[in-house]
Design a binder for these strands. Structure first.
Ligand code: MN
Ligand code: MN
Ligand code: ZN
Ligand code: ZN
Lengths: 158, 158
DNA sequence: TTCTCGGTAAGAATTATTCTTATTTGCATA
DNA sequence: TATGCAAATAAGAATAATTCTTACCGAGAA
């Protein structure tokens, strides 16, 4: 029930930054935008538009799925959220904009964040320098998470 | 016209491996499967199903798009091709199964391969070890390729 | 050559996302 | 606080990407 939530301490701060960015960009601070952003910022599981929409039913019962899509697209243009690269048919989103990487469980599809500073500061291979202007480099790891391994092995969850 | 082609030397070998895998897996060697695989193996640009279908019109005028999708899915199950992780709505595919990484131009969407052996042999950060069983780790780089930089700068192509 | 079953093509169906339009709302201003 | 208006929203239609259904076909075994 309290899964997939980021520590609350920074959320307040993040909401303020969000509101500031909206004001600067002349984006109206609607109830929908605030709640969509808050819900995504709270999540640690990189939800799809549909998942977000479902989670928001409680607080915004009349919210349309289209608004979720449209709002996320707007946020993306303003670098407030990112689309996560996956092999899924549904797009996944995150509000976590600072440098990090992803581990994906191919079994349950869960996407988790992790940090890797030594990688971040490693220079790229020579032959890439001439490719063009590089904006960022990220690692994606695929495998089977502990939970799914245990299920497959017939173990009960702790 | 001769763009996006892999060096031909290994293609012959790759086709033989493909045929062998099909036989072992009890997959019938149909004309469609051979041509779809060959076309993908020849490509270096990670085409979508639709792009592949278009390219195959010449050699297989009656080939349906559905067959391309279905065949690629079958190949994927047998580890003959991979879906490439992108942020695109269309899925992209490749027949290049050996370890490599991707640079993506956010402007023209071109996906290029590159190799990075020193990365490949670098151990993962400690805290990931307990996550589960890791199958592979890959780097994705985003930026703007030289071509697109030049276009933006108003330069003529060489 | 015949048989059989997996594979294919065509079109219908589904799923994910975006567009159109009428209505509402944030917010600047009086 | 009331008014005006552009921007944002909801609802449903439309589109795009992918998959399903079904009748026919052809690869490979016998
Ligand atoms: Mn993330
Ligand atoms: Mn590749
Ligand atoms: Zn899992
Ligand atoms: Zn480019």
């Amino acid at each position: 029930m309290s899964e997939n939530l980021a520590p609350d301490s920074s959320l307040q701060q993040q909401m303020e930054t969000f509101e500031e960015t909206c004001r600067t960009a002349d984006l109206k601070l609607t109830h929908q935008r605030l709640e969509i952003y808050r819900e995504l910022a709270r999540a640690t599981d990189h939800p799809s538009a549909e998942t977000l929409h479902t989670r928001l039913q409680k607080s915004l019962p009349t919210l349309s799925l289209d608004t979720v899509y449209r709002t996320l697209a707007t946020f993306e243009q303003h670098h407030l959220v990112k689309k996560v690269q996956t092999v899924d048919s549904q797009a996944h989103f995150e509000a976590q904009m600072s440098q990090h990487h992803h581990v994906i469980c191919d079994s349950c599809k869960e996407i988790m964040d992790f940090h890797w500073n030594s990688f971040d500061s490693t220079p790229l291979p020579e032959d890439l320098r001439q490719w063009g202007a590089i904006r960022n480099k990220n690692v994606t790891i695929h495998g089977t998470c502990r939970k799914c391994q245990d299920v497959k092995a017939g173990k009960k969850p702790a």
